[in-house]
């Protein structure tokens, strides 16, 4: 079962046979940390992110029969998670995806942010929407169409969002002195000086 793709496992889980629950357990194991880290950037606390992760998996299990295998399972799962995060923000009346996440906040010490490199810069200077698009593109490696599905936007809007995010990062990233140098010290300098 461990050799099966996530999509195969999801289809098996949707079939409702005796192995369905076990297949879904395997999916939980595969995506738990990834979904948690994605949601951690959308909500303000670790506790809320864990609650949302749990809620996302329960909802996915209840609606596994509506999963369409033409889409990647991760796309479907992250779409559910993203919708739940929006609902969570509406309930708590907070702006969507504030950057004040425990352990990742812009108030964290600069040396800690420097370790995150470009991602710390992204968390500090991008809008929540841009950060979500960047995360889905470069961490989850989703295609533009898949990001559009997760964010409930058109593909053009996603492309524009990604372009603006990269532009914002490029403007804040200091010019390289050497071509092959590691960017971490430059990012640290940008975070310490420019924010």
């Amino acid at each position: 079962m461990s050799g099966a793709t996530s999509e195969q496992l999801a289809v098996r889980a949707a079939s409702g046979d005796v192995m369905a629950r076990r297949c879904f357990g395997e999916l939980v194991e595969r995506y738990h940390a990834r979904l948690f880290n994605f949601l951690l950037r959308r909500v303000r606390s670790r506790h809320d992110a864990e609650d949302l992760t749990q809620e996302t998996f329960v909802r996915a299990w209840n609606r596994i029969r509506s999963y369409n295998p033409t889409w990647r399972f991760s796309t479907w799962l992250f779409t559910i998670g993203s919708r739940l995060a929006i609902t969570h923000h509406r309930r708590s009346r907070d702006p969507v995806g504030g950057n004040v996440v425990e352990g990742l906040s812009e108030r964290a010490p600069s040396e800690r942010r420097a370790r995150g490199g470009i991602w710390a810069l992204a968390a500090a200077c991008l809008t929540p929407e841009q950060h979500e698009a960047i995360w889905l593109r470069y961490v989850e490696e989703l295609a533009i169409a898949e990001i559009a599905m997760v964010m409930n936007k058109s593909q053009v809007a996603v492309r524009v969002c990604l372009f603006r995010a990269r532009q914002a990062l490029a403007e804040r990233l200091p010019a390289p002195d050497q071509q092959d140098v590691d960017a971490a010290p430059r990012v640290a300098a940008a975070l310490a000086g420019g924010m």
């Binding site: 738990h32 990742l104 991602w119």
Partner: peptide
């Protein structure tokens, strides 16, 4: 360059609490 950095740099990763997975399984 930004694209290269985003592709190559691993994001700051936070491990979920150890009992979170068991809690999810119970909820399901």
């Amino acid at each position: 360059e930004v694209e290269r950095l985003l592709s190559r740099t691993p994001p700051p990763w936070v491990d979920p609490s150890p009992d979170a997975a068991a809690s999810i399984e119970r909820s399901i």
